[in-house]
Design a protein around this nucleic acid. Structure first.
Lengths: 344, 344
DNA sequence: CAACGTTGTTACAACGTTATAAATCAAATG
DNA sequence: CATTTGATTTATAACGTTGTAACAACGTTG
C-alpha cells in the first residue's frame, strides 16, 4: 500500500509540518500561505517550496474557524432549473472577484429548502443567496434576522425586513417581448403564464400592460401554464383545439416554450411561419442550434454580480438601505422563432 | 436595527453561551447537542430548551475541525448534465443514510475540474466522488494517493491505482436496447455515438456485439455524435440526407436523443411509426409527458448508493480490494418512441 | 463501614489555523 | 559606541467544538 502523503503518520500535512520542513515558525508559514505582507522573499520561497514538497494544503475549516470572518456565501439553488445552473456559474465568478467563496446547497425533490438552508447555516456562511426561493416571506424575515439574505428572482412585496431582492424586471421583459411581436405585426398574442412561480405575476402584468398600450386589450389572453416542458405542451394543446388560434405565444420561460414548440411541431404547425414563440430566461436551452428560441434574457451574470455585491455590502456595513431591491433590465434576444404573421 | 440574535454582542451563539444559559458545563451541552449518551433526561431537556431560546446552531466547521473524522464526502459534478442532477439528488440521500455529509463543487464552462477538486480538498473532504470526470488517469491516481476517490460513470482501464469505479454496464445497456429493437423487428439500427465521452466506447461496443449476435453485422452503422441536443440533431440530419434510412436509432444519451427527435419531427418523420428512437440515462428529460422516450435507465439511485458505500468502506478500512470496480446493470425503460417498423 | 460500581457531570487539552503583540536583528543614526 | 529604526520573525492566545480522563454523588454490596 502506497503512503498517502509525505508526512510520516499518513495524516494530511498541517501548517506545523510545513513550518518544520521549511525550518520556520508556524505563524510565518501561515503568513506566506495566505499571501500576507511581511515575510521576506527568501522565507516566502522556502516555505512555498516546502509546501510543494509535502503537498501541503490549507485547511479551510480551521482557517474559517479562526478568523471571525468566513468570507463564505451560501447559495441555495434548484438542480433542475437550467437558469439556476447559469446563475451558479456566474455566482462562482462574481463571488471570487469579490474575495468570497461559495457553498452550494441544492434543493431537490427529496431535500427541502429548509434542509438546504440549515446546511448552509451550519457551514457558517456569512450571507445567503437564495435562487427563486419558495419559502414564505415570514421564514425569510426570520433568516434575515440572523444574517444578510438576498432573494434572487423572487420578488417580495412588501419589502421584507432585512431581505434584499435582486431580480430582473420581469414586467419589462414581457413588455419587450410583446413590443417585438406587435412590431412584427402580431395582434393575437397569448401568454402562457407561470401560475404562482416567482416572477409569474410580474410577467403577466407586463404582458397585459403592453397589450393595453398597443390598444390590444380585447386580445389579451392568458392560458394557465407552469415552469416545465409539460406545462407548455399542455397549454399549447389547449390552444390548438381552440377555434381561434393566436399568431404568437409568449411562454413563461424557456422550458415551457420548448414544450410549446414541440407540440406545434407535432401538430405540423410551422414555427415561426404560422405561429411565433417567445421564451423567457435565455437559458442554454434557447441557444441550442436546433431551437434558436427568441427569448427574454435575464442577464444571469448581472444578477449574480448584483446579488453578491449586495450581500457583501451588508457584510461590510456599507449597505445603503434605499437599495433594498435591485432590478436588472432584461433584454430581448431575437433568434429564429419569431417572424411577421402570415396573412390568413 | 433589530438585534440579530439572542446573545448580547450580536455574534452567533456558541456552545458556551448555550451552556451558560442552561446552567451546565460546555461539554455537557455538547453531549446533548450531538445526541451522545450520558446526559440525564432532565439536563437534556434543559439544554434543548435553552438552545431553542437563544437559537443555538452547532458550528460544523469547529465540529469537523475537532473530530479527526470529518464525515464529509466531496462531490464534483457538472451543472449542465441532467444525469448529474439526478445523481446529486441520490447522493444526498445515500450519504445521509451512511452518516456522511456532502459538499458540492460544480464544474462549469469557467470552472475547471482542477478548481472544483481543489475546493473540495480545502474543505477537508475525506473522500471524493467524481461524476464522469474527464481528468487524465494520472491525475486521478495522484488524488487517490491522498484520499479515496470514486469515479462514477467513467471507466478506467487499466484500473488506476487506488481509484474505485462505479458505473453502469454501458455495453449491457446498449445490448438491451438493440435486443429490444430487434425483437420489435428492426434490422437497420444506427448508433449515434458519444465520441470520447465517458462510457461512449462501451456503448459502442455493446451495440456492435449485440448486432453481431443477431446476425446483423453488415447492418452495423455508427454516426459520430456527442452529448448534446445539437450533436443529436446534426447526426439525424446526416442520416436523413442518406439514401438508406435506418428504421431505428440508438442515441448516445437522452439529450442527444431529444435532438434526434426534434430533427425527425421537423422533417415530418413520425416517431415511432417510421423511425424508433432510444436514448440513454433515463434522465427526467426522457420522462417528460410529451417526450416519453424509450431509454436505458442508469439507476442513479443504485450508482449513488454504491459510490457512497465504496467511499465509506475505504474510509472505514473495510475495503475489499477485489471490488475496485462496481458495475450496476442498467435496464431498459420502454416508453413511446419505439415500435415495430412499418413495412416499406 | 469500607470498598465499589453507576450515573451524571466537569476540567482540560486538543484539532489547524490566524490575530496580536512581543521579540529579534541588521542597518542606520546621533 | 549607544540608540533608534524598520524589517522580519516568533510566542502566545484565541476560534468553537469534542475526546479523555477525572470527579462527584449516589446507592450497593460484602
Amino acid at each position: 500500500m502506497p503512503s498517502r502523503s509525505a508526512v510520516p503518520d499518513g495524516k494530511r500535512p498541517t501548517l506545523s509540518d510545513l513550518a518544520a520542513r521549511a525550518g520556520v515558525s508556524v505563524p510565518l508559514a501561515s503568513m506566506v500561505m495566505r499571501g500576507a505582507k511581511g515575510p521576506s522573499a527568501a522565507s516566502r520561497e522556502r516555505v512555498l517550496r516546502a509546501a510543494q514538497e509535502i503537498g501541503y494544503r490549507p485547511d479551510s475549516r480551521a482557517r474559517l474557524l479562526r478568523s471571525s470572518r468566513s468570507h463564505l456565501v451560501g447559495v441555495q439553488f434548484d438542480l433542475r432549473q437550467p437558469f439556476h445552473a447559469d446563475m451558479v456559474e456566474a455566482l462562482y465568478a462574481a463571488a471570487g472577484a469579490a474575495g468570497y467563496q461559495i457553498a452550494l446547497s441544492a434543493v431537490t425533490a427529496s431535500r427541502s429548502e429548509q434542509e438546504a438552508v440549515e446546511a448552509l447555516l451550519a457551514d457558517r456562511c456569512e450571507a445567503l443567496i437564495l435562487l427563486s426561493p419558495h419559502a414564505p416571506a415570514a421564514r425569510l424575515a426570520e433568516l434575515a434576522a440572523q444574517l444578510p439574505v438576498v432573494s434572487v428572482a423572487r420578488r417580495l412585496r412588501p419589502l421584507t425586513d432585512g431581505v434584499d431582492v435582486v431580480r430582473a424586471a420581469d414586467d419589462e421583459g414581457a413588455r419587450q417581448a410583446v413590443d417585438h411581436l406587435v412590431a412584427l405585426g402580431h395582434r393575437d398574442i397569448v401568454h402562457i403564464d407561470g401560475g404562482r412561480a416567482p416572477g409569474a405575476a410580474d410577467r403577466r402584468r407586463g404582458y397585459k400592460s403592453a397589450m393595453k398600450h398597443h390598444g390590444l386589450t380585447d386580445r389579451v389572453r392568458l392560458v394557465p401554464g407552469g415552469l416545465t416542458e409539460d406545462h407548455g405542451a399542455a397549454a399549447a394543446r389547449t390552444l390548438l383545439t381552440d377555434s381561434s388560434r393566436p399568431t404568437a405565444i409568449l411562454a413563461f420561460n424557456d422550458h415551457c416554450a420548448i414544450g410549446v414548440l414541440d407540440t406545434l411541431l407535432r401538430a405540423r404547425i410551422p414555427v415561426p411561419d404560422e405561429i411565433s414563440v417567445v421564451g423567457f430566461d435565455d437559458s442554454h436551452l434557447a441557444r441550442l442550434a436546433h431551437v434558436q428560441l427568441t427569448t427574454v434574457g435575464q442577464e444571469a451574470r448581472q444578477l449574480a454580480r448584483r446579488a453578491v455585491s449586495r450581500a457583501v455590502a451588508r457584510l461590510e456595513g456599507e449597505a445603503a438601505d434605499d437599495e433594498r431591491e435591485v432590478v436588472v433590465t432584461p433584454h430581448l434576444v431575437i433568434r429564429s422563432t419569431t417572424r411577421a404573421p402570415c396573412r390568413s
